[in-house]
Simulated assay, not measured.
Amino acid sequence: MLTAVLLVSAAMALTTTNGFIFQRKNCPPGWLWSNKSCYFYYSGPRTWARAEEACMHLGGHLASVHSVTEYLRVQGLVAQFSHGFMPLWLGANDAAQEGQWFWSDGTQFHYSNWCPGQHNNHFEDCLQINFGERKCWDDVSCQHSLPFLCQKPSRASLCP
């Protein structure tokens, strides 16, 4: 928990140094704003289900990615928090039907960045990112424990 508090404190000091991630009034304290969403990085490893539960408790879901631009933005955020490209959970899984991936926030699963030969393993139903040298996606057992990234709409994106 202390690690998460220290990371939140560091995050609050961020500015637009990388051009897209900074603290903003449209996100709760400790969350970072980027492209109409708020993000919270949690370094404490949890199973995929426990990570999703923690994000829901905070009013969001595990993060979803819908374009290469979003993926690079998410990687940049993770790199700032973890001082590298650490593997972590995002919100996709194919637990309901093998090969049919969906995001836990209910959005469509159209974009992917699978590592060569990945997303082909039975009983490996959850998505980790920053896998291997290419820092691409891999399907792993949902019982594995990893850090994770939560996402929720910013308050500005909720306004009509």
Results as ranks from 00 to 15, higher is better:
His122Pro: 03
Leu77Gly: 03
Asn93Ser: 13
His61Thr: 10
Phe40Pro: 01
Val68Met: 10
Ser34Gln: 14
Ala156Tyr: 10
Gly117Ala: 07
Val8Trp: 01
Gln108Phe: 06
Ser145Arg: 15
Val140Asn: 06
Glu98Asp: 09
Glu52Ile: 02
Ser9Asp: 10
Asp138Gln: 15
Gln151Ala: 11
Trp89Cys: 03
Asn130Ile: 09
Ser34His: 14
Ile21Val: 14
Met86Glu: 13
Tyr41Asp: 04
Phe102Ile: 08
Gly117Thr: 05
Ser145Asn: 13
Ser82His: 07
Ala79Glu: 15
Ser157Tyr: 07
Phe40Leu: 15
Gln80Pro: 00
Ala92Thr: 07
Ala51Pro: 08
Phe22Tyr: 15
Pro87Glu: 13
Leu72Gly: 04
Met12Arg: 07
Lys25Val: 11
Gln143Arg: 06
Leu88Lys: 00
Glu53Ala: 11
Lys25Ala: 08
Val74Met: 13
Asp125Pro: 01
Asn120Trp: 02
Arg73Met: 12
Ser9His: 03
Gln75Asp: 09
Phe123Leu: 05
Phe131Ser: 11
Ile21Lys: 06
Gly91Phe: 10
Pro160Leu: 11
Ala96Tyr: 07
Ala79Pro: 00
Gly59Pro: 07
Asn26Ser: 15
Ala4Ser: 14
Glu53Val: 00
Cys115Asn: 10
Glu70Thr: 02
Phe22Trp: 14
Phe148Gln: 00
Tyr41Val: 11
Gln143Gly: 09
Leu77Lys: 09
Pro153Gly: 11
Asn93Thr: 06
Cys55Gln: 07
Leu88Arg: 05
Trp89Lys: 08
Leu62Ala: 05
Met56His: 11
Ala92Gln: 01
Gly132Lys: 05
Ala92Met: 09
Gln97Leu: 03
Ile21Cys: 12
Met12Thr: 12
Lys25Gln: 14
Asn121Asp: 08
Val8Met: 11
Leu88Glu: 00
Met12Asp: 05
Gly19Asp: 11
Ser104Met: 02
Val140Gln: 09
Phe85Cys: 03
Leu6Met: 12
Met1Ile: 01
Trp101Cys: 03
Leu146Lys: 05
Met1Lys: 03
Arg73Gln: 14
His110Ala: 08
Leu6Ser: 15
Pro28Ile: 01
Ser37Trp: 13
Pro116Gln: 13
Gly106His: 03
Gly44Trp: 00
Asn113Cys: 08
Cys55Lys: 05
Ser154Gly: 14
Ala49Arg: 10
Gln151Asn: 04
Pro45Arg: 12
His61Asp: 15
Phe131Met: 06
Gln100Ala: 10
Trp114Tyr: 03
Ser141Asn: 11
Ser34Gly: 14
Asn26Ala: 15
Asp139Ala: 15
Cys27Ala: 10
Tyr111Asp: 02
Asn130Pro: 06
Ser43Trp: 02
Lys135Trp: 12
Lys36Arg: 14
Pro160Val: 06
Asn18Gln: 10
Val65Gly: 03
Cys150Phe: 08
His66Cys: 00
Met1Phe: 07
Ser9Gln: 14
Ser34Thr: 12
Glu52Asn: 15
Tyr111Gly: 10
Ser154Met: 08
His122Lys: 14
Trp101Glu: 00
